[in-house]
Amino acid sequence: MTLQELSLLLTSVLASVAGQFFLKSGALKLGKVTFSNLIGHIIGITSTPELLIGLTCYALGAIAYILLLTRVHLSIVGPAIALSYVFSVLIGYFVFQEPIPISRIAGLGFIIAGVLLVVSNK
């Protein structure tokens, strides 16, 4: 992967992770969805800035991903996007104080190792 391709990959991953962060922040503002408040929550989605920012971040991540797919094989890019899982867990831990059990840490290690194997040029 060239430096430009790696930059597109990281842009896609980071934009998607930013989208997840903002969607979580907005979802916390909305509160728990039940059948009785479903319509209010759907309307709330369109008026909650964090949710709109999150959706915009996802769109930017998708654009970067599409641009990357014009340059790199899907068999490389698809698995490499799994890095977003690693960053999502870290944001969950550091920002939202979500616990990370040891089994999840091991899983993240496998994801990182797998991505490194997939994107290596050797």
Rank of each mutant, 00 (worst) to 15 (best):
residue 122 K to Q: 07
residue 51 L to T: 01
residue 108 L to P: 10
residue 103 S to E: 07
residue 43 I to M: 00
residue 13 V to I: 15
residue 85 Y to Q: 05
residue 119 V to C: 07
residue 71 R to N: 14
residue 108 L to H: 06
residue 2 T to W: 05
residue 109 G to H: 03
residue 75 S to H: 08
residue 10 L to V: 09
residue 11 T to H: 01
residue 116 L to H: 05
residue 98 E to N: 11
residue 121 N to V: 06
residue 75 S to G: 12
residue 3 L to P: 08
residue 61 G to M: 13
residue 44 G to I: 00
residue 85 Y to L: 08
residue 5 E to Q: 15
residue 109 G to L: 08
residue 71 R to C: 06
residue 42 I to F: 11
residue 61 G to P: 13
residue 93 Y to L: 07
residue 70 T to G: 04
residue 120 S to F: 02
residue 52 L to P: 01
residue 10 L to T: 09
residue 62 A to D: 15
residue 70 T to C: 10
residue 112 I to N: 12
residue 55 L to V: 14
residue 79 P to D: 02
residue 89 V to G: 04
residue 21 F to V: 11
residue 103 S to W: 13
residue 34 T to R: 08
residue 82 A to M: 04
residue 59 A to M: 12
residue 51 L to R: 01
residue 92 G to T: 13
residue 40 G to N: 12
residue 87 F to P: 03
residue 85 Y to A: 01
residue 43 I to N: 00
residue 95 V to P: 12
residue 75 S to Y: 08
residue 101 P to E: 10
residue 27 A to I: 00
residue 97 Q to M: 09
residue 103 S to P: 02
residue 76 I to R: 13
residue 17 V to E: 12
residue 113 A to I: 15
residue 24 K to I: 00
residue 84 S to E: 10
residue 3 L to Y: 10
residue 108 L to M: 14
residue 20 Q to N: 12
residue 72 V to Y: 07
residue 87 F to S: 02
residue 21 F to G: 04
residue 61 G to F: 14
residue 88 S to P: 01
residue 85 Y to T: 03
residue 7 S to F: 15
residue 15 A to T: 13
residue 34 T to E: 13
residue 5 E to Y: 11
residue 68 L to E: 13
residue 38 L to Q: 09
residue 34 T to N: 13
residue 77 V to I: 15
residue 106 A to H: 07
residue 8 L to Q: 05
residue 62 A to K: 12
residue 56 T to P: 08
residue 109 G to K: 05
